[in-house]
Amino acid sequence: MAARHDLSTDPRLQEELLQARRGTAFFARKLNELTDAELDGGTRLPDWTRRHVVAHVGYNARAIARLVEWAATGVETPMYPSPEARNHEINFGATLSPIALRNLFDHSAVHLSVEWRDLPDANWANEVRTAQGRTVPASETVWMRTREVWIHAIDLDNGATFNDIPAPVLERLLKDITGAWKTRGTDTGLLIKVNDTAGNGADLTFGDTSATDPTVITGPLPAVVEWATGRGTASVTTAGPKTNTTTPPAPKWI
């Protein structure tokens, strides 16, 4: 008999599941504010309409659910057969009728939540493989979904901003992004400073801390994450070895 509540008893994981579900609810609210005709409108992502964003978020839930099923059964079920298949799926989803597109989001979100709910404690440590080829524990799927729903709710370009994202999610996003830059060596000479994180007086520093004369990006946490994800430069300042330094584009993240 299926559980009526999450089988996981790990307090940290329970909190992460809550953030993922809150993000899903936030995306749903911003989607439901749009009329069917407005789904044809543009987004904060080049070449993608709102239809593409909704299709991507819906199919992403299905793909992550496959990883959770993998952790539950031990049977390998990749997120996507190939990058080409993923792109084709999104482009196809963007052609669906408005009601079908909305149902795709709703049903896939419920399916993923149920897969998480019914995964026993012992299975959360089982390893699965992401679309980027990383081997991670099944618990990582919760964070994978969290960042998708929160960021893409903003990409709908329907009034949501990075200020709507909870501070713990923003901090983890920035750690992920700057960690990826460091691994690739693309943060050389780039220092990121966050002022007064979550209003608690603490500052955060990321990037090339060993640089003698770095380009320094400074701002409040939401603004710095907005810049780091490649979605704008508002409310960040830039200083560096060159006079009249303009804010550079952030290095590639994903």
Rank of each mutant, 00 (worst) to 15 (best):
L7P: 02
E15F: 12
G199V: 07
N123M: 15
L112A: 04
G219L: 04
L173W: 10
L31N: 11
D155K: 01
H52K: 12
V194T: 06
F162A: 00
K242Y: 10
G201D: 02
I99Q: 13
Q14N: 11
R184C: 05
L39K: 05
G41I: 14
S82W: 06
N195M: 13
L112N: 01
E140F: 14
A20L: 15
A94Y: 08
Q19N: 06
P166C: 05
T243N: 14
R12G: 14
L101K: 04
G232S: 03
A37I: 15
E33I: 01
A202D: 11
G207D: 07
L13R: 03
V53L: 02
T24V: 09
A211H: 01
G232C: 00
N60P: 01
I254T: 11
L204V: 11
R129I: 14
V194R: 02
A25L: 07
R86Y: 11
T77M: 12
M79I: 06
Q19A: 08
A211F: 01
R21T: 13
D187E: 12
D164G: 03
N126I: 09
E148S: 00
K182L: 10
R134F: 15
G240E: 10
E89W: 10
N123P: 10
P137V: 14
A71Y: 09
A100G: 06
D36F: 07
I165S: 00
V142S: 03
A153I: 01
H56E: 03
A153T: 06
A94H: 10
D213W: 02
A234G: 05
V114M: 08
A167N: 00
D203S: 10
T135K: 13
A131I: 12
P46V: 00
V57E: 00
R12Q: 15
L221P: 11
L45E: 00
H111K: 03
V224E: 03
A3W: 15
L45R: 01
K242L: 15
A85Q: 12
L174H: 01
V169M: 04
V68S: 08
K175N: 04
G93W: 14
P81C: 12
A71Q: 04
T218Q: 15
S139D: 04
H88G: 15
L173G: 14
D213V: 02
E148N: 03
R184E: 06
